[in-house]
């Protein structure tokens, strides 16, 4: 076998991000397997990982984990480059944008529950905007807003609480 010309240095950070992204991908597979009454309503369990990574390792790592999760999750679910993939990507990009802003909130008053809610509503808004612009070019999609917003509220709070608990139960360096 010809030896590879390029040599990739794998640092501790890379390994950690890969490990966390794998956890996120696993959760998004579970997510997809949970039956839901309406298309578009999902618990978004993988976002728990994003929140934990954001709290522990900062926004850059959270963006990596989230991006890898969207691409690898899309490949595993057979959605890669299909509409579902782009919806997922739009949601992830919007959530990350709002999480970047959420980091400026004073930590004493606002915790992962706030971040999670901001991210879940941003996620919904991003997906709806893309759906309206591209998949269903009719204002009728906005009639789904109440149902989607209610789901974003409920799952946003639950995911935020789970992230809080994980951060408490697994102090720094023990998350693997």
């Amino acid at each position: 076998m010809t030896p590879s010309i390029t040599e990739l240095e794998v640092g501790a950070d890379d390994v950690r991000i890969a490990r966390l992204a794998a956890a996120a991908v696993g959760l998004s597979l579970i997510d997809a397997a949970i039956p839901m009454p309406l298309p578009g309503v999902k618990p978004g369990l993988a976002n728990i990982v994003t929140l934990v990574v954001l709290a522990r390792y900062g926004w850059g790592a959270a963006a990596w984990v989230s991006g890898l999760r969207v691409v690898a999750g899309g490949l595993l679910l057979g959605q890669f480059l299909a509409p579902g993939f782009f919806l997922s990507l739009a949601g992830a990009v919007m959530s990350l944008a709002f999480l970047a802003l959420a980091r400026w909130l004073p930590g004493r008053l606002f915790g992962p529950v706030s971040w999670s809610l901001l991210a879940s509503f941003a996620h919904m808004a991003g997906q709806l905007a893309l759906a309206r612009a591209w998949l269903i070019p009719h204002d009728g999609v906005f009639r789904l807003v109440p149902v989607l917003a209610l789901a974003a509220l409920i799952f946003g709070i639950i995911n935020g609480l789970v992230a809080c608990r994980l951060l408490l139960d697994f102090p720094l360096g023990k998350e693997s």
Binding site: G111, V113, S114, L117, L118, G160, L161
Partner: peptide, 11 residues
């Protein structure tokens, strides 16, 4: 107890 004061506002 995991919900901080500001979190209530956001909720």
């Amino acid at each position: 107890r995991l919900i901080r004061p500001g979190d209530w506002l956001v909720i």
